[in-house]
Design a protein around this nucleic acid. Structure first.
Lengths: 290, 290
DNA sequence: TCTGATTGATAAGAGTTGCTGATGCACAAG
DNA sequence: CTTGTGCATCAGCAACTCTTATCAATCAGA
């Protein structure tokens, strides 16, 4: 049954549309015996009659009508899929992207919209994940491109910087009004392995404060809500907190960490897929700032 | 591009699912070189690389992933359509039915539900139409079966009676309370060519009333509403008016036409499609009464 | 580092399939 | 009855696909 080719079914549809083998033969730029043979092949493979020979013509049987009706939309879809896949012009395909939460919130929107506009044939599959798993997936070939915060280096990876964003200490206004960090304010940070965590610790040391037990939350967006509700202070990318600052739910400290949060895009160093390379190139030209 | 067979795409899907050519070869009960050849064929037809040879294995390119994802549901649909079409057990297919309005309201519901229950593979396409066009379509092969009222006979048609329903004079209660037709009551009927019209005329004559200008409406359901609103009296199949009689919107006259309305089912006399013949046989065993 | 196992590519031969062009048969219209 | 139309069939030819056997590249483990 699987010996049937696409053109067999296409032949069926054209016979159904035009009514005669001969007309279908002309439409498909072939000869009438070829059409006869194709129909014979289909009927042989399926084991049922699709056409009833009637007078000097043929008409569809009930089964044949059902088959034609069922196949028409499927075939149209298949043709467009193949056409799309075979379309040389421009990049096309599915690119699997991994992103850290912060990168997803800061870099990805503009990247995704730029790709959607410039390369309409490209579909993005984005998964948010932790940095370690992200890199693991890229190395294993499960993901194509990773957007992540903080410098990473690995022999199997090729990376490019895509900009940096300012970090700042934030807390609810009642806490931040003193404009000075002191040891009674609970400190929050994302998990150990995040570059933000490193910056948090360094900033605390620079301010002469002890690096005490630090509360952690592995989701920045959630942590924004926690800190905004008065739970303490934390270092955030300023752009991610912009709305909460504007609405007065968070306020900045005068104390500011020195370093920025730098973003990178990473692919496997032996990547050869032209579409992935093109997207890497475009990502590397992104310039994230704020 | 159309030289591709179903099994080419199926091969693609199995490679994507299993990861290697060898595994796909085993799954598809063939050899690895055959799989290689199929892939080469697909890539040749499409003109793009679907797999990237990497190390001792292969991985999908971005385009390839897109193609696989696009094809998966389409292929599943195609397979089930072909499987359904090739399924010998029982009748299956699309049968095009033409029906007159009255037949549609009286015979078709039970027929359609019986078919739906006994022959789940059969799909019905029902068109309501006027008797003349119906028969024309059946003779031309545009419709397979016709359900219609009144006896028809044509050299190209094969018919079978499927029962009869009682006819009765109806009007709104205020008119019908006299229980006697008289010449001041406007008479309604469906168009000239309907058997109901003939019965109406005969009944009028039998009652000693003149066959005056008769109001017509080519839709019985609409005419029921017209008569129920007090516009006059008309002969209806009693079953079609049952609800309006029960709710008191229509009432019967004592005067009743002698003849019933007989229904028939018709197919082309040289019909050979086994599914159509089976449905004709079943329709002929319908027994409509009321 | 070396060996063995795994994976895909390639080549040659056999079998099959599909197309073409010519011909025959059935049916419909004039 | 003749002509035209439409499908089936046949023979020859070209193309394709499968299989078996072999090769090259890569990776895992000793």
């Amino acid at each position: 049954m699987h010996k049937l080719a696409i053109y067999h079914l296409e032949t069926l549809l054209w016979i159904a549309r035009l009514g005669t083998f001969r007309a279908a033969a002309e439409r498909l730029h072939t000869t009438q015996p070829a059409i006869s043979a194709r129909v014979r092949e289909i009927e042989g493979q399926l084991g049922v009659a699709i056409f009833r020979r009637e007078g000097r013509g043929v008409v569809l049987t009930a089964r044949g009508r059902q088959l034609v009706q069922d196949c028409e939309p499927l075939l149209a879809g298949l043709e467009s899929a193949l056409l799309e896949a075979g379309n040389h012009a421009g990049a096309a395909g599915i690119v699997r992207i991994a992103a850290g939460e912060i990168a997803a919130a800061t870099c990805l929107p503009q990247f995704a919209s730029a790709i959607g506009k410039d390369l309409p044939g490209v579909t993005l599959h984005i998964d948010l994940d932790l940095t370690a798993r992200m890199l693991q997936n890229v190395l294993a070939g499960t993901r194509d491109i990773a957007f992540l915060a903080g410098p990473v280096a690995s022999p199997g990876l090729r990376t490019a910087p895509i900009g940096a964003v300012d970090l700042t200490w934030l807390a609810s206004p009642s806490i931040a009004k003193e404009n000075r960090l002191h040891s009674d304010i609970p400190i929050w940070s994302v998990g150990e392995h995040s570059p933000i965590h490193r910056v948090t610790c360094e900033s605390l040391k620079a301010a002469g404060l002890p690096v005490r037990a630090i509360n952690t939350c592995n989701n920045v967006e959630a942590m924004l809500g926690i800190v905004a509700s008065g739970a303490g202070a934390a270092v955030f990318p300023k752009v991610m907190a912009r709305r909460l600052i504007e609405t007065g739910q968070l306020a900045e400290f005068h104390t500011r960490p020195k370093s920025q949060l730098r973003f990178e895009v990473a692919i496997r160093s032996n990547e050869t897929d032209p579409v992935v390379l093109e997207l890497f190139r475009r990502a590397a030209h992104l310039s994230v700032a704020g």
